[in-house]
Design a protein around this nucleic acid. Structure first.
Lengths: 185, 185
DNA sequence: GGACTCATGTAAATGGTTACATGATTCA
DNA sequence: TGAATCATGTAACCATTTACATGAGTCC
């Protein structure tokens, strides 16, 4: 059956620090969004299920008057996490909608393709700028937090990906532009 | 709501050539598997639904004694395809299990990480070899089939992606190897 | 005859997305 | 007082995966 990867992603973050559903989402969005995202509507029910399974314990806490439910990983949770981590990663079938639409690009107005490619270039630039800031932070902390070595590897992946996608989009943009001129002239 | 992308992928291929469910799957696996895959269990029911919606018509045919159901796209189907193509592509949240496990790599045996990275390098090499053959074929046909220009763009994406993933994996492999030596010495 | 491929489908279970509902606190 | 943010959750719907079922034709 399909493994519940959300569960293990949450266990991974809880293995570092106890947290609430809301803050887990923030943490994930702020650290691994480059290659992993979690959905609002799933984190709450899955944490509840994990508590029932004994992978985490929960306690209510009122920080600054607001109450939130803090989850702490158990020994069983750590064992489940490490079991999952030791399994070979399973690649999922890729699905890139931009590529699919480019594949059928001859049915499309060249101007529309050009716009999408320009968007892709802009998006890559934004990613690269964001990653540069993250890199500075991680490199500053790597002496104190050796684990950050691994975070830098995943950041490196993001940087290389953004760079190649930008190059690719620029190359396509030129070709689409040429085609455009040909058709227009 | 979530758009049914399988439907439009099938329409795209049917817009070029009538086909059966079985052969559509083969075509997809042999041309766009690099960035798009379809599932065995979905193609049949979705084609049936598309017939009910008037996007395709079906006829039974016996080729070489074997009977198969050939689907042909209708004008309504072509219109639906072009409507979808004109919409901006919607990126889906990324989920890369290898990256997630690398992020928590400090909980892992370095030997295991090294093996995964070696696998990634081998996989990239295999992809690059396969893409080189496809490139030769596409470049040979591009004068007769101008549409192949777009197919080459998506192939180029695959080549660049495989190349960057290989480079990344080699870099990580070295770092993991170093770490390994440190720990072992 | 037996293994393999061609070919079409169904069923069950889970994963994932989106939209909605609710209420408290902070800050202008 | 009203808007924004913090915080937890539910419901409906669709996508996706996996496994199973079935049968005919081909090739050795």
């Amino acid at each position: 059956m399909q493994p519940n990867r959300t569960k293990f992603a949450l266990l991974g973050f809880l293995s570092r620090k106890e947290s609430s559903a809301y803050r887990l989402q923030e943490t994930i969005a702020g650290s691994v969004a480059n290659f992993w995202r979690e959905n609002d509507g799933r984190v709450y029910p899955i944490l509840a299920k994990m508590e029932a399974e004994g992978l985490v314990t929960a306690r209510e806490e009122a920080t600054g008057g607001r109450k939130s439910k803090i989850y702490t990983i158990t020994d069983a949770g750590l064992a489940a996490l490490d079991d999952w981590l030791a399994d070979d990663p399973v690649p999922r079938p890729p699905r890139n909608e931009l590529l699919l639409k480019m594949f059928f690009g001859y049915r499309q107005e060249p101007e529309v393709l050009a716009r999408w490619l320009d968007d892709k270039i802009a998006e890559s630039d934004a990613d690269l700028a964001r990653f540069a800031k993250t890199r500075a932070k991680l490199e500053a902390m790597v002496d104190d937090v050796p684990d950050a070595t691994f975070w830098l590897m995943t950041l490196d992946y993001g940087e290389r990906r953004a760079a190649f996608e930008k190059d690719w989009a620029r190359m396509c943009r030129e070709r689409v532009g040429d085609r455009n001129l040909e058709g227009g002239a």
